[in-house]
Amino acid sequence: MLPTPDLSHLKQADYNHVYEPSEDTFLFLDAFEDDQKYLETLKPAISLEIGSGSGCVTAFVGKILGESSCLKLCTDINPRAARATVATVRQNKLTADVVETSLVEGLLPRLKGKIDLMYFNPPYVLTPSEDVGSRTIEASWAGGIDGREVIDQFLPFVKDLLSPKGAFYLVVIEENKPEEICNILHQDGFDSAKIRTRAAGRERLHILKFTRRTAPEDKH
């Protein structure tokens, strides 16, 4: 069992502005722990977390990979979250390069095909569309119709950013229609797997994992 990252530097006042790690976060950590061997073999040179919030997940992934073996990039649209991420990786004796931006704006085309490991715990909660697009803590959960508005905005970037060997992990709930998400990425050439599922209160959480479909073997 890997320990949960040290978050003792974040206080309740911080969590008024930054999403506090919760069941979804912990399920995400469990999925990465399950995949520890895979990640060690993958040996990502560059990782990217979208919406890193408190920084808990990147600190955990950083512990798995080892501080010096991977350039860890994070983005968050909420300036307080971006700073919380920096503080958390530092608290856990790690480093990460954090960018204040919406999803991955400003990272393309330079990082095209260069990300070996990408992960996103998106705003998946079903809300009115008007709630989407804030730069405050609301951005951590407000997902619009079917909780899919931000997810769907991001999906087209997966094929652009991931390296040939890259893997993408995504948190969703049942209401986001995971099969539909898998189908969308399938059309971009990705295989999908549901690697963890957990019921937490009213939410039925899933962790999806996507990798590039290997070309069918040439039989000739």
Binding site: R83, V98, V99, E100, T101, E105, G106
Partner: peptide, 13 residues
């Protein structure tokens, strides 16, 4: 101009 503060570049437009 994109500003960097606290080591964090702000790419928001």
């Amino acid at each position: 101009t994109y500003v960097i503060r606290d080591g964090i570049p702000n790419m928001l437009l």
